[in-house]
Design a protein around this nucleic acid. Structure first.
Lengths: 229, 229
DNA sequence: AGATCAAATATCCTATAGGATTGTCGGACC
DNA sequence: GGTCCGACAATCCTATAGGATATTTGATCT
């Protein structure tokens, strides 16, 4: 076994074309790398909800020491993706129940329509151009990524870091919930996205806000059916 | 030492006086203890903004190992109270600038009036009774604690964990900002609190929402004056 | 057969030492 | 006086050993 595990990736013969994009190369630590790796595993359901995540197994799997893994798990715990029990190890958070789903969408309804209004009024043109409805999504995962990017761009367009960060955190949980049930309803969502995009392109704040509110309400109705309790 | 495992449970002669208060004794780890200690130091400005916080000094000061301190700092970083730079150590977050203050109060205006409305409609009676306006606050710190508790009770009364957690996180930053300037304006805030309490006691959701919105807007005006830029 | 208790395993938590990297400070040089 | 360079210090990352605790398993008893 060579030390090829978790290669940093800073290849020196990288074509220095767009060095202006990231003028400083900060390795930014192994902890963040591990954090993103574990978070990706949770999002992709490679680590299903309510699954034990031991430090030792991650040490063996990733080939790094305990310290960055513990830091990564602590950050994940602060973001609600894993939970720790004393002397019992970490475990991925259990799947959302009905009450948590209600809370999450109540919260989204408070934030995201307002974000859409502000994005319509002040969003940058290049971000506006990057908006894609997800119509050409070939697979479930591809649509999920596009949906995440869609909402992320709007949240960023609102120009408020707290709004963007909060919504990013929440969308992870929405994504996990949706993946748990292999929800296949994409056609309606694509159409709702298009309505929002049209309002944004027209710089019509009120219409964007209403379209986003309707999209979230309909999305809630689609997801709620998966929970009986 | 001979008896490696001395009868795990069933100790009948344990004084079972107040075992109802804490049926399960979970030490819950040193990391959380350290976390609360450092957070308290940041809130009380014993660690002013933009101050280096090294792991070694905390090891010497608190007398615990590096591991729980690193975990605590990672959690604090996820909550935005400290920031880490690779190979340069941790430091408390710098004081909020104008843009961050604007973002924070825009966010509060989205959440907290709605929380006040829901609290008026569904708040528990004993929580309602615990509301105090802060009129009898003897000192600046005492009023700050009462203010935190006031907003925490209302956020909890909304019955949405995401709302309560988000507002708790934000109020920490408001508290730090206010403490930085030794803001002395308490009389107006006390009166605004009383208006909110009256609406809550009357179970008048619309009035509570309006009163909370006005309180936040006025509070923003008071704090904004401290920043020129 | 089902339940209860004790031993065994796996894991976390702590502590210490050492290597690797970065930021900083002081002095030399133009 | 301003700028560049090297040594120092601080910090992070890794590795290992040992103690403490929760979970699991298996045997015994009713």
């Amino acid at each position: 076994m060579t030390k090829t595990s978790l290669s940093v990736g800073k290849v020196p013969d990288m074509p220095a074309l767009n060095d202006m994009d990231r003028p400083i190369v900060r390795p930014s630590g192994l902890a963040e790398e591990v954090y993103r790796r574990i978070r990706a595993d949770i999002i992709s359901l490679r680590l299903p909800p309510d699954t034990r995540v031991s430090v030792d197994s991650l040490v063996r799997e990733l080939g790094v020491s305990q310290t960055p893994i513990r830091e990564a798990l602590s950050m994940l715990e602060a973001n609600g993706l894993v939970s720790k029990r004393h002397f019992a190890g970490y475990a991925t958070s259990p799947r959302m129940n009905r009450a948590q789903l209600d809370d999450l969408f109540e919260f989204r309804l408070l934030i995201e329509p307002h974000a859409a209004r502000k994005a319509a009024e002040g969003m940058a043109d290049n971000d506006m151009a990057a908006l894609a409805s997800g119509e050409s999504a070939p697979s479930h995962d591809a649509f999920a990524d596009m949906d995440t990017e869609f909402h992320r761009l709007i949240a960023q367009g609102a120009g408020n870091h707290l709004i963007a960060d909060s919504l990013a955190r929440l969308h992870i949980h929405v994504h996990i919930f949706r993946s748990c049930f292999r929800s296949e309803i994409t056609e309606e969502a694509v159409h709702e996205h298009d309505v929002i995009i049209a309002a944004l392109r027209a710089r019509d704040g009120a219409r964007a806000e209403a379209a986003m509110r309707r999209h979230i309400e309909l999305s809630y109705g689609r997801l709620r059916d998966f929970i009986k309790e």
